[in-house]
Amino acid sequence: MGTNADQMEREGEDDDDIVCLESFFIDDNYQLTTFTFGSQVLQLLCLQSASTDFDLTGQLVWPGAMLLNDYLSKNAEILQGCSILELGSGVGITGILCSRFCRQVVLTDHNEEVLKILNKNIELHAASDNPEYCAGLAAEKLEWGNSEQISQILQKYSGGFDLILGADICFQQSSITALFDTVEKLLRVRKEGKCKFILAYVSRAKTMDSLVISEATKHKMQIIELAGTRSCVGNLEGVIYEVSL
């Protein structure tokens, strides 16, 4: 039988294991990666595969972001001179592309680790040969459904936004109500339906497919599929929706 000192030492080791657990799962081995969308070439730090846990899906570029960026690069006129807020920005690939056309881009995420890499990518573009590409580009913390954080953003950017963007952000059924609650608050700042939410959606489950449509309807929003945007993304089907009040 071990002594009390032995037992305390073992318990201390257990505590150390718990403290170190999160850092064990966090992968920050980012690689500078080049992406091309039409005539636009972006270089971003990102992971090549997902971290295992702790809600760090935002560390890599997801198929829906590729779908949305392809659409935006082909329809850049909708971005010209606009003010945009992106939900679930991750490493910032969509927001940074938009900064080449928009007057102001606010990229948001709720995860502190993801916000670190998001800010690094903003700094990377601020130091580029074309600093005008990052004019008005900023990152803010935003957890969907968090009224305080939403209010802080709307106070800071009091004019509201012309477009709300989201790329591949519908993963968990439990988050969809909070997502549309947030979208509704952001859309209502601009009266007369002047603000729209553009969602690049990738189908992974039929229950989620119907939930996105029904949740928009519950919030009294019109959700339409943009013509010609339904396509194969990897081995999945993707589509771009336009959502408005």
Results as ranks from 00 to 15, higher is better:
2 G>C: 06
4 N>S: 01
6 D>Q: 03
6 D>I: 08
14 D>P: 10
20 C>I: 07
21 L>A: 12
24 F>L: 15
34 T>S: 07
36 T>M: 09
39 S>L: 05
45 L>Y: 09
47 L>A: 07
50 A>M: 12
52 T>Q: 15
54 F>V: 02
56 L>H: 14
57 T>H: 06
61 V>L: 03
63 P>T: 03
63 P>I: 12
64 G>E: 02
65 A>H: 08
66 M>D: 12
69 N>G: 03
70 D>R: 12
74 K>T: 04
86 E>L: 01
91 V>N: 10
91 V>Q: 03
95 G>F: 08
104 Q>D: 06
107 L>W: 08
109 D>P: 07
111 N>K: 04
112 E>Y: 07
114 V>R: 10
115 L>H: 03
116 K>G: 08
121 N>Y: 09
125 H>N: 06
126 A>I: 06
128 S>T: 08
129 D>R: 14
133 Y>V: 15
136 G>T: 13
141 K>V: 12
142 L>I: 07
144 W>Y: 09
144 W>K: 08
146 N>T: 01
159 G>Q: 02
161 F>D: 11
179 L>F: 11
180 F>N: 03
180 F>P: 00
185 K>P: 09
185 K>C: 13
186 L>D: 10
187 L>V: 08
188 R>P: 10
193 G>I: 03
196 K>H: 08
197 F>P: 03
202 V>K: 02
207 T>Q: 13
207 T>H: 14
208 M>P: 13
214 S>E: 05
219 H>N: 12
221 M>K: 02
223 I>P: 13
224 I>G: 15
224 I>N: 15
225 E>P: 01
229 T>Q: 08
230 R>L: 13
234 G>H: 09
237 E>R: 04
